[in-house]
Amino acid sequence: MRWGSFVAVGDSFTEGLDDAYPDGTFRGWADLVAVRLAAEAGPDFGYANLAVRGRTFPAVVADQVPAAIGMRPDLISFAAGGNDILRRSFEPGPMIERFDAVVAELRATGADVLLFRFADLMARLPGQRLVAPRVAVLNRAVGETAQRHGAKLVDLFADEGFDHPLLWSPDRLHLSAAGHRRVAAHVLATLGVGCDEEWLLVPPRPAPTPWLAARGADLRWVGQHLAPWIRRRLTGRSSGDTVAAKRPTLGPLTNHHP
Score class of each variant (00 low, 15 high):
F162H: 08
V52Q: 11
G54H: 12
P170Q: 07
R182K: 10
A62M: 01
I85F: 14
D159N: 11
A111I: 05
H149E: 01
E160M: 10
S239M: 09
E105Y: 00
D74P: 02
L201Y: 01
R181I: 08
V131S: 03
F26V: 15
V9E: 05
D159M: 06
D11E: 15
A132W: 02
P133E: 03
R27F: 03
D241H: 12
G110I: 08
R205I: 00
L115P: 10
A189L: 05
N139F: 06
L125H: 04
P210Q: 08
E197R: 14
L115N: 09
P203Q: 04
T209F: 01
G24N: 13
R205V: 12
T25C: 01
A207N: 13
W168H: 07
P133K: 03
G16H: 01
P252W: 06
A213M: 14
L153N: 12
W229Q: 14
R107Y: 05
T254R: 14
V137T: 15
F13Q: 12
W29Q: 12
R247E: 13
A51L: 04
A30M: 06
F45C: 08
W29P: 01
T254A: 15
V243F: 02
V65I: 12
N83S: 10
T25L: 07
L253P: 00
Q128D: 10
D218G: 15
D163E: 14
V103A: 07
R181L: 05
L226Q: 14
F157T: 12
L219P: 03
N49M: 08
R129I: 04
W211D: 12
T25Y: 00
G46Y: 03
